[in-house]
């Protein structure tokens, strides 16, 4: 493994160098351009172009090479590591959850720009799961004296999980750290007997009894612990036989970072992010007999 890391680190350094050279040249070009504006001399403009074009080429090449490197790292290191951690797991870095699946959570509002990647699917302790990184952006339009400016603001960046949840219950239930359900269902706010849980989460359900049925004292404690272990805003949605979990932690998981050494700690971090799935299954007792899907003949 260390030799494999060396190969990746060498390639990464080349990509980083190209990026740095590109950025420096772009910086020089900007300074020269500002100099031209200040002095009115066209000589500055020629030098700005001479520095700017190679700068853009270097920066673009650096970014492309880094992306390629990141992809091959996922193929050669991450996929085998995932398959070792969870036998039979499928990991597709360039594929993500569909928009429909994400909105089926009924916790996330429709985005103007949607992106999803790092799709993971499999079965752990007889519980089927899928998960993916999701980025949701909202379009903003600003009217200024110079015209109209359009920009996008990210309101969700994190992970969405879907687990099979075979505990029979009527209605729909959501446990949210903030906000309210994105649904037209007749959700009512439910107060559970745990004061700490009510302080941390807002519970919405179409049937109060169902909320108490699903959220047993053990499950409430598990949700509290899950929240402590995963920074960011957590949401749980129980719909039909599915449990959706969203973690809005402003983090793009399973991605290499430029200027960060590739070593065992990176792999360990990826593994930890993967094992959140196991953490949910065990903490929420989804592997309990009552929650498991019956084997299909």
């Amino acid at each position: 493994m260390p030799n494999q890391f060396d190969v990746f680190n060498t390639k990464k350094k080349t990509a980083e160098k190209q990026t740095v050279i590109g950025m420096v040249l772009i910086g020089i070009a900007v300074i020269l351009f500002l100099g031209m504006q200040a002095s009115g001399s066209t000589g500055f403009l020629i030098f700005a172009i001479i520095a700017g074009i190679p700068g853009l080429i270097f920066a673009a090449k650096g970014a492309t090479d880094f992306k390629k490197l990141s992809r091959s790292f996922k193929q050669e290191v991450v996929i085998p590591m995932f398959q070792e951690a969870i036998p039979g797991v499928q990991y597709r870095p360039d594929y993500g959850l569909s928009e429909m699946e994400v909105y089926n959570t009924e916790m996330l509002k429709r985005a103007d720009r949607f992106h999803s990647e790092d799709f993971i699917s499999g079965q752990l302790e007889s519980v089927q799961f899928i998960s993916s990184d999701v980025r949701l952006e909202e379009r903003h339009v600003e009217h200024t004296k110079n015209g109209t400016r359009t920009y996008y603001v990210t309101y969700f960046l994190g992970r969405v999980f879907k687990f099979s949840f075979n505990k029979e219950f009527d209605g729909y239930l959501q446990v949210l750290e903030g906000g309210s359900p994105m649904s037209r269902r007749d959700f009512k706010k439910v107060k559970l007997e745990s004061i700490d849980f009510n302080k941390k989460f807002k519970t919405f359900a179409t049937s109060e009894l169902s909320a108490f049925y699903v959220l047993t004292p053990d499950i409430m404690e598990s949700i509290m612990n899950l929240e402590k272990r995963n920074p960011g805003r957590i949401g749980l949605s129980f719909t039909g036989e599915n449990l959706y979990i969203t973690i809005n932690n402003n983090k793009d998981t399973f991605e290499l970072k430029m200027f960060r050494q590739i070593d065992q700690s990176v792999v360990d971090e990826f593994r930890q992010d993967l094992m959140v799935i196991k953490d949910v299954i065990v903490a929420m007792k989804l592997n309990n007999n009552l929650f498991k899907k019956a084997p299909q003949n």
Binding site: L192, L209, F212, Y213
Partner: peptide
């Protein structure tokens, strides 16, 4: 029966709340 026990516990907790 195990399932009805769970429902009973939920109903009991809701009532007590």
């Amino acid at each position: 029966v195990a399932n009805t026990e769970e429902h009973l516990q939920a109903a009991r907790r809701l009532y007590n709340a």
